[in-house]
């Protein structure tokens, strides 16, 4: 009989304790006036970068305003992040790797339509582009995009349906093919189809792809942002990976925006705006460059020049006639990507 009584006692105790603990675990939820935390919903491979940015921003903000602030991070494929925000994820700012995902938020009324003109460089504090990481000694001799469609070369990049990162890879390859075949769309389609069929693993986010390539030794080439490529090479020095920067690639802008609907509700507009401005400041830019992103600040760019190989970057606007067009013809449900992605 004793155990049962003890059991009841324990459950009662737990039930009594629960609300007290619950309040401890939801500190920011009720704070209407002065939120001491904001949430940055970001792309997958920016984990370390924003950890460093936040570590710098928090004391800077305190010194400036005297207020404590904590920036929380959430990282995943940006389409997933945008969807989560529409479903109720209360992110104060988004730092994405794709304009279309913020456009989606703007269409749903979460971000003001003019978000791109609110900050410099189309609201992108830094940029990068898809580059290649190959195994020690580059055994498959991969130099450029056309090496990726060879039968003997196996690729790793994430699922273009969920990852902005992979969509850049797809578009960069497509742009390369259009250029190579003088705008022959049928040939470019075949090129992209072959590229997709050479992929051994599709992870949902960029970091999953990196893990598959590095830890699980899948594929010959990892295609991801140059920032991630260099980062991985440095993080795994013993594996002697090599960075291959193709002759031409596609400019990947990393747009940022304040999520108006959320900051207005939480009263965090000021700190959210300060946070994004900080990313443009010399300190913020330095950290971005330290994490292998190419930055716009001329002084910082000059300082880190030696780190980056020369590359010719084409723009979505020039090759594909803008993001709206890309979204319609390539990425919409039933669009070109769907067709090339699954058709054998």
């Amino acid at each position: 009989m004793r155990p049962s009584r003890r059991l009841i006692l324990t459950s009662t105790l737990a039930a009594l304790l629960a609300p007290a603990l619950a309040s401890g675990f939801a500190p920011a939820a009720q704070a209407q006036e002065q939120p001491n935390q904001i949430l940055n919903a970001s792309y997958d491979v920016a984990r370390e970068l924003f950890e460093a940015e936040n570590k710098q921003f928090e004391p800077t903000y305190k010194a400036k305003t005297g207020k404590e602030i904590k920036v929380n991070q959430s990282h995943a494929g940006t389409s997933k992040q945008a969807r989560s925000i529409v479903e109720g994820l209360e992110a104060d700012v988004v730092t994405f790797n794709q304009i279309t995902d913020i456009t989606f938020l703007a269409d749903k009324g979460y971000v003001a339509k003019d978000w791109q003109s609110r900050l410099p460089n189309n609201a992108s504090p830094w940029y990068s582009f898809p580059a290649f990481l190959v195994r020690a000694g580059n055994p498959k001799n991969v130099k450029n995009w056309d090496d990726l469609v060879r039968d003997d070369v196996k690729l790793v990049f994430p699922n273009p349906k969920t990852s902005g990162n992979a969509r850049y890879t797809y578009l960069a390859a497509y742009a390369f093919a259009l250029e190579k075949f003088n705008g022959d769309v049928a040939k470019a389609d075949a090129f992209a189809r072959k590229l997709l069929s050479n992929v051994v693993v599709f992870d949902t986010g960029g970091r999953g792809a990196t893990t598959s390539f590095v830890e699980r030794e899948q594929g010959d080439v990892l295609i991801t942002f140059e920032a991630e490529v260099i980062g991985v090479k440095d993080a795994y020095k013993d594996k002697n990976f090599q960075v291959v920067v193709p002759e031409v690639s596609l400019l990947a802008e990393f747009p940022v925006a304040v999520v108006d609907k959320v900051v207005d509700k939480r009263g965090s507009r000021q700190v959210a705006t300060d946070y994004l401005n900080f990313l443009y400041s010399p300190e913020g830019q330095k950290i971005a460059a330290e994490y292998n992103n190419r930055v716009f600040d001329p002084k910082v760019a000059e300082e880190y020049k030696a780190k980056f190989a020369p590359v010719r970057l084409v723009k979505v606007e020039d090759v594909f006639g803008g993001w709206a067009n890309v979204q319609k013809t390539h990425f919409a449900s039933g669009g070109k990507l769907d067709e090339l992605f699954v058709a054998p």
């Binding site: 984990r47 929380n72 991070q73 959430s74 990282h75 994820l89 999953g208 893990t211 590095v214």
Partner: peptide, 24 residues
Amino acid sequence: SGNIRGQTNTLPLQIELLYQDNNA
């Protein structure tokens, strides 16, 4: 869960997150 670090990450999610943070 919104996968917010230090907010809505339970242990299994934390495992996946660490694994993807190159921290096997």
